[in-house]
Design a protein around this nucleic acid. Sequence first.
DNA 1: GCAAGAATAT
DNA 2: CATATTCTTG
Length: 349
Amino acid sequence: MMKRLGNMDYNQKRERCGQYMEALEEERRKIHVFQRELPLCLDLVTQAIEACKRELPEMAIDNLYGQSECSEQTTGECRPVVLEQFLTIKDLSTSNEEEEKDEEFDDEHGTHDPDNDSEDKNMKSDWLKSVQLWNQPDPLLPKEERLQPKMIETVVKIDESMRKDLMVNGGGEGRRKEADKDGGRKQRRCWSSQLHRRFLNALQHLGGPHVATPKQIREFMKVDGLTNDEVKSHLQKYRLHTRRPSQTIPNNRNSQTQHFVVVGGLWGPQSDYSTGKTTGGATNSSTTTTTGIYGAMAAPPLPQWPSHSNFTQSIIVEEGSESHGEEVVVRCSSPAMSSSTRNHYVKKN
DNA sequence: GCAAGAATAT
DNA sequence: CATATTCTTG
């Protein structure tokens, strides 16, 4: 009896492995086309196949002794070494960072999107969402330590200010802004989606992008270390962005019925924002706007819009940027991409 | 002098 | 493009 069951089991396993292998080979065929672009991929798959091949015959033996290396987990796959590698990688990224005492996690795959695979995403967000709200220069540092210029600066600064004073006294020139090469440039703040969410949240509570003032926002967000200017800057960008992303290019002859999803409702009641849920609207696929994560709230609820309300459409695009892993890159250290062609605007003195 | 916004700069 | 910094104004 038992034996028989065991056998069946074994056969099943075997069969599955076989299928798995076939699948792999199929995959390999596909990938092969992109050999150039995805050499590693191809390699991995190949390895996987080989590993499987190796395991298949062994199984017989193993099984006799009651051990099968290949014993599948609940899913019934025998996964070769290669796959383990993936797992490992994943683990690494998970374990690497923890922290994030700050509430607000989100993910939430609502009901939409029945057709597409989403569990993959789920898994991902699982380990992705543990990213810090933003990058603190050093988790170790006390927390206010950031954006400290080099102390050497002090000297330079003094020098600089003296110079300025002199200039002012000298009278002639208005103050030139002197390229303070302080190096004192603040570290760029990365507005992670979480941070941005807080931002949006604040906006929402304060009455919208056009009424909320940077200071208010900052206070509302209660994010330690966040400065006024940063918020101001972000707000500026946000406003620019949320304004009609309409005709970007004059050339726009594609009357492709751009369709935007009006989002009036995101505003008031949205309730669960406080908990940090992304009130992701629909994951509508049709929208092709350039609007990225900004769309969250463009339609002013009740608050009066300036006056030039052209009832522009408010667009919304899913906010779910996190599911794709940009957040993993915690540091944004690159000062600037070199855009060699820089235009010199004539300075108006 | 502060703060918000717009304009630049990086 | 996204942030930072400077300029301007109330």
